[in-house]
Design a protein around this nucleic acid. Structure first.
Length: 577
DNA sequence: GCCGTTTTCGGCCCGACTGTTTTCAGTCG
């Protein structure tokens, strides 16, 4: 059973428990376990076989037992009993923002609504507005969210969300607000965002919020209060702005950055120390004294913690490590000395070798790697043997002229049968060989794993490109035994790419962390197809940081000479796996 | 249902906003 199916069932259980009005902490326990499994890099079923379910944070005796039942019998009695207590479709109502458990029960119980289309009908007939403690406004609000839900794409990739946030921030620059910054999942650099959170400080909060709610790009105002406002901007993105007094900027930024799990853990820890944490500061419960924080760092330090970078705030073990001053020193953009994955107009890029080299030099890089596609990518004008050699000459010539080290390379296709698209005799002439899957994505796990391993075993292959093959919100990752891949990479000194294209971000954060634990080296490649895309490096660094990546884990922080040395050390012995 | 810098039992984050009400319930993040 795939993790996604387990997630679906646990989420359903949490929803049903909400409808039932169960103990809120029990509900939260299921939600927490759900979130854990959602981001868990290994197969939960496999873990169950090894009796290691308790390795998953939030999975204890009760949920563990249920998962075991589910895996061994294919059914879960508890789940089936819960489902039988409510008309089917009732929990689907909870997907509509504005409908919580109480409203869902009311709609289902009093109006017999069990689907979103029935809900829509009932609203139009005025039945919903006539219920006790509901009314026209609430009915309209639900109808509106219902429409939005239907038209809305899923979550927004960070590559789309970040520019929107930056636009809004620059539109607000002329109003009396300072400290404007992104918060929420965007600041934590999550690969996708549900909405966009922005925070600022002002002594004229209401004025700022008013300006915000009436910006030209705002299509609709969802809420407008004294400290926060929510709006929809084109194309159907929700943006939340919170404006607080200057002296609570530190605590507010901490609070609004989240994640929810991180904040809950932090506050629970505070409670045990007799402290109440909120966006307004830290209150000592004994004396009632509230401490305010202008800087977020001071908030953490006051609690006896080292500063926790936003990318780590996911409620894993970051708080415990911060208490021991044992957090990793994360990779930073300024540590990057070169790019390992760049296309030019020799294949499907827009700029010449020289233009890319000049741009990279302007960014302060020591080296750049030209890795155009191989011939199999016909649509991308992939290079055949002859053109590879011609490009090599060109690269050497440009290198001398521009004054930046250029590694010659290729992004060679891994064909469906695991063979590479160019012979070893050609690949051996290049400094860096990236091998990538660009076809037959739907192979089963066994075949795909063998396919990848045969590339890894090839002594010419230095880097495995965008290993999971996913495209955010477009294409699922391939079926692959990552654990086996990681140990093969470690054994052969094959590097795994962190592809920085915001649509890919591949490897993703949880795999990055697993790969590092397995002792695999990583490389960041912008996969730039134009000069401006060289800047994608910062997306890769963000996602690497979420994978607890330090500068020693990635090749991009090495000098040019060190990189060349590394590439020579590829282990050629056949794998023992 | 989970979990431990006091705990294997007894806790479990905290406040804003809205609409429908005359003081609050429901929802959200």
């Amino acid at each position: 059973m795939r993790n996604a199916e387990v997630v679906k069932i646990l989420q359903d259980i949490a929803d049903l428990l909400e409808l039932k009005g169960e103990n809120q902490f029990k509900i939260r326990a299921y939600q927490r376990a759900t979130r854990s499994i959602e981001h868990f890099p290994q197969s939960v079923e496999q873990l169950a076989k090894e009796g290691r379910l308790n390795d998953i944070p939030g999975v204890g005796e009760g949920i563990g037992k249920k998962l075991n039942e589910l895996f061994s019998t294919g059914h879960l009695k508890y789940y089936e009993e819960l489902r039988s207590q409510f008309p089917s479709g009732t929990s689907a109502l909870l997907d509509v923002p504005g409908i919580g458990p109480k409203t869902a029960i009311k709609l289902s119980g009093e109006l017999g609504i069990s689907s979103l289309s029935e809900l829509e009908e009932a609203i139009q007939e005025g039945k919903v507005a006539s219920l006790y403690r509901l009314g026209d406004k609430i009915a309209q609000n639900i109808e509106h969210h219902l429409k939005l839900l239907r038209s809305k794409e899923n979550r927004i990739p960070i590559g789309v969300a970040l520019p929107v946030a930056e636009n809004v921030i620059s539109s607000l620059k002329s109003s009396p607000v300072i400290n404007l910054t992104t918060a929420g999942s965007l600041r934590r650099f999550k690969e996708t965002a549900g909405d966009i959170d922005i925070l600022g400080t002002s002594d004229r909060c209401e004025e700022v919020l008013n300006t915000f709610a009436h910006l030209p790009e705002v299509k609709e105002i969802l809420a407008l209060g004294e400290t926060k406002s929510s709006v929809i901007v084109a194309p159907d993105l929700q943006v939340d702005l919170r404006v607080v007094p200057h002296d609570s900027f530190g605590s507010s930024l901490q609070y609004f950055t989240g994640s929810k799990d991180h904040n809950i853990k932090l506050r629970e820890r505070g409670r045990r120390q007799g402290l109440k944490l909120s966006e307004y500061g830290i209150t000592e419960l004994d004396s009632g004294i509230t401490h305010k924080f202008t800087h977020e760092e001071d908030f953490y330090h006051w609690l006896g913690l080292s500063f926790i970078p936003p990318e780590l705030r996911e409620g894993q073990e970051e708080i415990e490590l911060a208490a021991k001053s044992s957090l990793p020193h994360l990779l930073e953009l300024s540590n990057i000395r070169g790019d390992f994955h760049v296309h030019t107009d020799w294949s499907d890029g827009q700029n010449s070798v020289e233009e890319m080299a000049v741009a990279a030099k302007d960014m302060g890089y020591e080296f750049i790697t030209i890795t155009d596609h191989s011939r199999g990518r016909g649509v991308a004008h992939g290079l055949d043997e002859e053109r590879v050699l011609k490009q090599l000459e060109r690269i050497r010539e440009v290198e001398g002229r521009v004054g930046i080290h250029i590694l010659s390379g290729i992004e060679v296709d891994i064909r469906a049968d695991g063979n590479l698209d160019l012979p070893d005799s050609v690949l051996s002439k290049l400094d860096v060989v990236i091998a990538s899957v660009h076809s037959s994505f739907s192979q089963d796990r066994d075949r795909m794993t063998k396919r990848m391993l045969s590339a890894v075993e090839n002594s010419q292959v230095d880097i495995l490109g965008h290993p999971s093959g996913r495209l955010l919100e477009e294409r699922e990752e391939v079926a692959l035994d990552f654990e086996t891949l990681f140990s093969a990479c470690k054994e052969t000194k094959t590097v795994l790419e962190i592809n920085c294209q915001p649509k890919r971000l591949d490897l993703k954060d949880s795999y990055i962390r697993e790969a590092i634990k397995a002792g695999v080296k990583l490389s960041l490649g912008s996969d730039a197809h134009s000069i401006s895309q060289l800047q994608y490096m910062h997306f890769g660094v963000g996602i690497a940081r979420r994978g607890w990546c330090e500068s020693k884990h990635v090749l991009n922080t090495l000098s040019f000479e060190e990189v060349r040395q590394w590439m020579k050390e590829k282990v050629c012995a056949p794998l023992s796996i």
